[in-house]
Amino acid sequence: MSLHHDVKRYPGLGPLTALFFVYLYAPLAVIVVYSFNANRVAGVWTGFSTQWYASALNNAALMNALETSLIVAAIATTVSTLIALSAALAIIRGKNVRFRKLSETVVNLPLLLPEIVLAVATLILFSLIDVQNGMLRLTIAHSAFCTPFAFLPIRARLQGMSLDLEEASADLYADRWTTFRRVTLPLIFPGVFSGAMLAFLISMDDFITSNLLSTGGSTTLPVYIFSLIRAGTSPELNAIATLLILASLILATVALLVAARGARETA
């Protein structure tokens, strides 16, 4: 006789999980639905329209903010990923590293501090040494707080990788640069890619720091959206939001697929 009930099963979890996913996605769906509303008052549905997408795409301030965000994110992603990569290589592969534990804590420090504290502290620093250029302020601050997000996946990848292939390469008289380029880098690439994607995401998404450090000419996308929200909800804002949601979901899917493929290939 078999057990007529599974002891690992808790009743009601299925419906609860289904509700949970509705809860996760319904708010995003609301934005998408309202973006097609013909009425100027976002909450009052009067008919289907795509006019707000046209006005969103013709919005010069929006495009400027998007450009600023992309430039800052591109620089911050490059800088933080390179710094994180060299730090991870040193911490995991280095021999007799002094201050190994301390260095790792320093790289991860932005994760331990509330962002608002770091943001106002950076603002004070920049006003003391008189750095007025908004783009410069943003790229420095973003590079710093993106570094741990780039670091953690690279570190995890390096740690899970055996030294055999690198040793074989060195035994075959490949110099260190060749070994790094032809052996180490391809092996840890999924980690580097995940790290760079995370850094890019965190930079594009940042509001707290950018809001305090940006100047008139360097408004980032979240800061611009914040000012739109403050001015009141509008269907054009919903159209902008929908386009951004779509872009993030595509980006996320690509990133996760690449990461999953990398994991499969080396599994």
Partner: peptide, 9 residues
Amino acid sequence: WVSMILRVY
């Protein structure tokens, strides 16, 4: 992955 400000909005 969706911007935090949009999730609050």
